[in-house]
Amino acid sequence: MTKKTNLKDFLINNAVIIIMFVLVIYTGITKPNFLTTNNLLNIMANMSYRLVIALGIAGCVITSGCDLSAGRMIGLSACIAGTLLQKLEYSGKFFKDMPPLNPFVVMVIVMLIAACFGSVTGWFIAYLHVPPFISTLAMMEIIYGLALIYTGATPLGGYITGYTKFSTGKFLGISYLIWIALLVACITWFIFNMTRHGKYMYAIGGNPQAAEVAGVPVKKTMIIIYAKAAAMYGLAGFMLGAKAGGASVNTGLGYEMEAIAACALGGVSVAGGRGKVSSALIGVAVFELLKAALQYLGLDANAQYIAIGIVIYAAISLDIRKYVRKK
């Protein structure tokens, strides 16, 4: 191969990212407000919980699955967290006279609850061979029903400052939400690359029959993947509640699709076996920057959905091209 074709390949393989950079720089030059520290921090805060969701769902996608229950799990977790962290003096308090709990304890509680539901999803996938699409679809319905019953469909608000501080509080000038997302990214990187579980996940995604023959505990690994992902949705729900200062049963609606799209865009192969932490990060970043840039450029908010759809088509076609050509 000559250098020229290498450059061409490089341009095509990274076309979406390159176009993103061009768009961001163009917006930055034409709209001076865009590339300000404040705005970038705001975009990063929006990325933070989306990254946590995407990292959770990445494990499912790497094993050629998906998780449709993510959005509803985020909603339920945000609601549970909300009911436990309201101010005593708030008039519409959900649990009257119950003092608010420690926010960190609540964070762990919602993660554990979500993980329990996730392990049920995983159990059906691993032991009863229910396809992930269906298993997580069923869980999505169940979770939504539980959230409706639990909250009585009442929106929640009046959070203690200890909770909203997760969003407003800063360390080194950067919101705690962003620090949490970075920490989760590091932990996920560690799990994917430095533990047996991560290697087994890639093996199952690459060739489930071969994984079985190689002695990989396929069933156990699958349950852990879905339970771990759900715990991360729980965390994301907690973060989203802190950021919004409130929650309702529809919190998080549709986030699972955004997350799957972000993973695929960043290079997590939906056919399984391929994908890194950086893939999820790139995917989430591309989407959030695109949304923000288009907004600054004055594109109609509704038309942004069309732009996102086009980007997904372009990115995935180009990504698939890399692997198809190899055969």
Partner: peptide
């Protein structure tokens, strides 16, 4: 192809998959 190799993984991962328990 069917139940031996993991095509999209490296040689290292293909060798390691059965022995990770021994290398912790």
């Amino acid at each position: 192809r069917g139940n031996g190799i993991f095509g999209c993984l490296s040689i290292k991962d293909n060798v390691g998959v059965s022995v990770y328990n021994k290398f912790l």
